[in-house]
Amino acid sequence: MANVSEPLKSLHTNPARWLVVAVPYLWLLLFFAAPFLIIFKISLSDTAIAMPPYTPLFQGFGALGDFVSNLDFENYLFLTDDPLYINAYLSSLRIAVISTFLLLLIGYPMALAMARAPTSLRPTLVMLVILPFWTSFLIRVYAWIGILKPDGLLTLFLQTIGIMGPDDQVQIFRTDYAVFIGIVYSYLPFMVLPLYSALEKMDNTLLEAASDLGCPPWKAFWKITFPLSLPGVIAGSMICFIPITGEFVIPDLLGGADTLMIGKTLWTEFFGNRDWPLASAVAVILLLALVIPIVIFQNQQKKVA
């Protein structure tokens, strides 16, 4: 019996099994891990040599010595000198924190309501949450432009029901408010689903036990339901917080000129100013800022798996 299952567990008995691991492993090393080393290197190089048209970076290992002697922290110094970048970082973090909080505030009641719905209804509800995610992100953000524009549908709606005078307009488009709306809208499924799966797994008899022991429902929520859903809260928050911090499309399409987000800055440096090293330095620092949340996220995922 043990001999039968053994070959499946061990890599050593059959070298062909190495391929199963090796192919995806090497692919990710080459196309996911290696680029980070390169981005790190470029962030330390001069604008002149790294700008296109541009000499390939790999000139054999002999070039390694040159590389070390040419280390140049100019880009990083520039980042710290110019308040624009610092402000963009802080603003990104602020927007990400606030949005994540808003997402929790809206997503938690939704997830809870889904988890408490009749069992027969739940798959449909999950489907309804997932479905918008299958339609393009860009399209969904774009849809909000038509709604939030000063002469858009929200203004029309508010004018029609009489909350607004015929000459007033909603001044949300191209402000941070529009960015919050766009982010909450786009990321809501990512927040609801981990929360739902944590809440749905919860044993209802625990709440009955709490009630039986004299705990009224609202108190039972804070003593039992919420603490037990914490893994879902953390997973959902990280899944939202990390990409929001580097978000580009939403602040670009819905935000105003004064909406500072680091993803937008990076994009501008790269596509607008063609300053690749500076863009790389921005990316490296963004990455460093996200290391801790990413590690938290990974630990959470490992526990689930």
Binding site: F31, F32, P35, F36, I38, I39, M238, I239, I242, P243, T245, G246, E247, F248, G263, L266, W267, F270, A279, S280, A283, L286, L287, L290, P293, I294, F297
Partner: peptide, 11 residues
């Protein structure tokens, strides 16, 4: 979870 701008740029 990696911000797309980082993945895109590094690749």
């Amino acid at each position: 979870v990696m911000p797309e701008v980082i993945t895109g740029l590094s690749m």
